[in-house]
C-alpha cells in the first residue's frame, strides 16, 4: 500500500539519522537520547506491520527499562560530561564504518534471499495475529516449555545481578 511505503521511508530516514546521531554525538547522554529515537522508530515500524503487542513491548522494555539501564551505566563511568570532542573519538572510525557497511550488506542479502518474493497479506487477520490475545494463546498453549524456560533465564539474570552487586 502506498501510504505505508511513505510512512515506512519517513520512519526509516528518521531512524537512520538518529542512529548516526548515536555514534556522532559528543555527549554520551545525548547518544542515549538518540538511541531512544531509534528504538521508538522501531516500535512505530512494528505498528506499521500490525504487530501491536510487539510494538508496545518494544516501548516498555527497551525505552522504559533498557535505556534507564544505559543511563545508570553512563552515570557509573567516571568520565565528566565534557564537550571535549576528542574524548569519544578515535582512529578506528573508518574500520567501524567498513564493518557497519559489511553488516548492512550481509543482512540485506540474507533478508532478500530469505523473504525476497514474499508479500505480507494486510488484513484484519494480520491485526488479530499481532494482538496480545493471539500471542497469549500461542504462548500458553503451543510454547509452554520455552515460556517456562524464560523464567529460568530471568532467574539466572537476577542471581547474576545480585552476585555482581555483592562484589562492591
Amino acid at each position: 500500500m502506498w501510504g505505508q511505503q511513505v510512512v515506512f521511508w519517513l520512519l526509516a530516514i528518521a531512524m537512520g539519522a538518529a542512529a548516526i546521531g548515536v555514534v556522532r554525538s559528543r555527549d554520551v547522554v545525548h547518544s542515549v537520547l538518540f538511541l531512544v529515537v531509534v528504538l521508538a522508530g522501531a516500535a512505530a515500524q512494528y505498528i506499521l506491520l500490525a504487530a501491536e503487542f510487539v510494538a508496545w513491548v518494544q516501548v516498555l522494555i527497551y525505552i522504559g527499562a533498557v535505556v534507564v539501564l544505559f543511563l545508570f551505566g553512563v552515570m557509573l563511568t567516571r568520565s565528566p560530561m565534557g564537550h571535549d570532542s576528542n574524548r569519544l573519538d578515535n582512529d578506528q572510525r573508518w574500520a567501524a564504518g567498513v564493518v557497519a557497511l559489511l553488516i548492512f550488506g550481509v543482512l540485506t542479502a540474507l533478508l532478500v534471499d530469505a523473504f525476497g518474493g514474499q508479500q505480507i497479506n494486510f488484513g484484519p487477520e494480520l491485526v488479530a495475529q499481532g494482538s496480545p490475545q493471539a500471542i497469549g494463546s500461542d504462548l500458553f498453549r503451543t510454547f509452554i516449555v520455552p515460556f517456562e524456560v524464560v523464567s529460568m533465564l530471568l532467574l539466572a539474570a537476577l542471581v547474576g545481578a545480585v552476585v555482581m552487586a555483592r562484589k562492591d
Binding site: I61, G73, G136, F140, L158, A161
Partner: peptide, 21 residues
C-alpha cells in the same frame, strides 16, 4: 542504583509476559 535498574529490567520483562496472559 545500577542494581536496582537491573532488577527493574528483569521484572519489567516478567510483567510483559503477564499482559498476554
Amino acid at each position: 542504583y545500577y542494581v536496582y535498574a537491573l532488577l527493574f529490567v528483569i521484572f519489567d520483562v516478567e510483567a510483559v509476559f503477564i499482559f498476554p496472559w
